[in-house]
Amino acid sequence: MGKTQIVKKKEKVRPGAWQIILIAGFLFYMFIPIISTYLFSVATRWDRTILPEGYTLEFYGKTFEASYFLSSLRNSIILSVSTIFVSLVLIVPTTYWVHVRLPQAKPILDMLMILPFGIPTVVLALALVQVYNPTPLGHSPVLLIGAVFIYSMPFMYRPISNALNAIDAQTLTEAGQSLGATTGQVLLKVIIPNIFAGIISGSLLVFATVFAEFTLTKLILGARFKTFPLLLVEYTRINGNIAAAFSVISFTIAWLVSILILWVGKKSQGASAEAVRSH
């Protein structure tokens, strides 16, 4: 019995020919645009040959000369980081509360949290502008943070909810309370460390989503608050090569930040991540 299972497992590991083709096709589909963007950002001329005729770093120089380069980068980072912050502060306690005190409301929360996927961003943006325009909030970055928070909410909620499902949050909370801790102390000292992996992946997803956000920013704030994607789109109309260079910078920043968040997560987690994973 045991032996046949082992054999089966081994067979599963070796992929068939069609699997290799499928995976290769998928990787091709995923990476060709990225590789082309990279190449295009350093190409002198690339319309008559398969590979570019020559290479140059000139366009990267141009990106740094762009007047809004630094400010748009700064704006994008401010926007992403504040959204992650708002998202964490609102979603972690809410999700925890529902898991522990109102488990019957979990399906409702699950449904609420996929609603943002169902609302086209254009509609969301125009609706917000209409409602808030007469108030001081209209056209303010605060409104934008609110909007991208809603838009990116599912990305934060899902990993956190899954992480809470993986631990027995209710019993851990009761154990903490019977030892004299308040609910807040339990959340900080017991629950958050044990769902840290979920918090990190939620933050990464929110960062990636918000850093690349275009529609909401454009419609709510427009030129008043130029973010990196806005600048990038602007340059696609001016010079394709420079736009490609912007894209590459954007990718790189997103990757660097992802690595940074993962690294911070690993570091503050240390051995306990291991403990949680094998729990």
């Binding site: 851990l172 154990a175 017991v190 306990s272 949680v276």
Partner: peptide, 10 residues
């Protein structure tokens, strides 16, 4: 508790 409920991160 029946399920021990030790804090896994500690």
């Amino acid at each position: 508790f029946q399920a021990y409920a030790l804090f896994p991160n500690m």
